[in-house]
Design a protein around this nucleic acid. Structure first.
Length: 198
DNA sequence: TAGAGGATTGAT
DNA sequence: TCAATCCTCTAC
């Protein structure tokens, strides 16, 4: 079952980030479906320094974050990687959830091909890697997440509170005290969660 | 309009 | 530990 606008347009971005765990992110390109279960997310809000839209700073890049919940926000990081976010909340409130890792469900062979990997392990364990595996690039920026090319669906998995781990977000040391917010959510003991040196 | 740096990754 | 790589944002 596809997630609808109501799911994305709620007020609490951290709650949506938690609830996205266990949901399925998929793309269909040239007739091939690829995707998997979301096992790691991070919440971002205009209220804190880690966010591109901190203090409602609106630029050409982050404009989509100010749009309605249920849109894709895709941007280039380090000149190399496309990072995929889900825009949440209502028009004018810049919040989003970064999808950081998936557990493959469908199209594993195609994802291996796209990432140039010969093994099927950890091909979607990281925000830059999963976009490459699913074929997501900036052309998807601003697209709705209920299309035939890109969507998130409820796979029926029930995630209990005690299966979710909250920790500080990755790679935003410049955000000062806000870098310590426990807004990174992972499934406990899931081997597909991204590896970090932190 | 130039210059610095980034919500990462994989190889050394 | 470090380079790849290019777009975005800020300052001048």
């Amino acid at each position: 079952m596809l997630l609808t606008e109501d799911f994305y347009r709620r007020r609490s971005v951290t709650r949506i980030a938690r609830e996205l765990l266990g949901k399925g992110l998929f793309t269909k390109i040239s007739g091939v479906t690829t995707g998997g279960t979301i096992v790691e997310t991070e919440a971002y809000s205009w209220k804190e320094k880690g966010c591109h839209a901190y203090q409602n700073r609106k630029t050409a890049r982050n404009e989509v974050m100010f749009g309605n919940g249920g849109l894709a926000y895709v941007y280039l990081c380090y000149g190399i990687h496309n990072l995929f976010n889900v825009v949440t909340n209502k028009i004018g409130t810049a919040e989003a959830v970064l999808i950081r890792a998936l557990q493959p469900v469908e199209g594993t062979l195609e994802m291996m091909k796209r990432t140039g990997s010969t093994k099927d392990n950890r091909i979607t364990s990281g925000p830059g890697k999963l976009t490459k595996a699913l074929g997501i690039d900036r052309e998807s920026n601003g697209n709705i997440l209920q299309s035939e090319k890109l969507w998130i669906e409820d796979l029926g998995a029930v995630i209990r509170k005690n299966e979710i781990l909250a920790s500080p977000r990755i790679g935003i040391g410049y955000a000062g005290a806000d870098a310590l917010l426990p807004w990174r959510f992972t499934l406990k003991n899931n081997s597909w969660v991204s590896k970090t040196s932190y």
